[in-house]
């Protein structure tokens, strides 16, 4: 019985996962509800500025690849992560979702980063292309739905 309730909560982990290249071009976007996607893309677009700002000004603790909460609106919270090679990952969650703590978000990014490096080492992926890999897609969808 308890297990079932948990399932309901965890079935909705993140709303959107996005990868943005070092030149700030979108390389991969997937979202849970297609009708929100445009709005979320706008929000991600504006949070790229927050990323740049954080990378420029933050001096001490900016050695961490995880940047934390970048931007929040009434409906969404946007978290960011930037690799050493300036590739940006974004995870958007619902503002009302209080179950996700910092640690869980970190874990999501770690999984995403691992999938990304695997993709980069795959000779079938040409650097700079839009990401169409099924494996990567599976990991990203797993982050959205919470069953991975």
């Amino acid at each position: 019985m308890h297990l079932q309730i948990l399932q309901v909560y965890f079935s909705d982990m993140a709303l959107c996962v996005a990868v943005v290249s070092k030149e700030n071009a979108p390389k991969y976007v997937t979202s849970l509800n297609p009708e929100d996607e445009l709005q979320i893309q706008y929000e991600i677009h504006s949070s790229i500025d927050f990323v740049e700002e954080k990378l420029k000004t933050g001096k001490k603790d900016m050695r961490d690849l995880y940047l934390g909460l970048l931007y929040s609106t009434e409906d969404h919270k946007i978290y960011g992560y930037v690799t050493n090679t300036k590739v940006k990952f974004f995870v958007v969650i619902d503002s009302s979702n209080l179950l996700l703590r910092d640690n869980e978000i970190r874990f999501m990014f770690r999984k995403l980063h691992t999938a990304y490096t695997d993709l980069m080492c795959n000779p079938f992926y040409i650097p700079g292309d839009y990401i169409t890999s099924e494996n990567f897609n599976k990991v990203a969808r797993g982050i959205l739905t919470g069953n991975s």
Binding site: M62, R63, D64, L65, N84, T85, Y116, C121
Partner: peptide
């Protein structure tokens, strides 16, 4: 080199 760097900097802190 391009691909390798993505892999080996994964666990490392940010270089500025």
């Amino acid at each position: 080199g391009w691909r390798l760097i993505e892999r080996i900097t994964k666990e490392l802190p940010r270089y500025k």
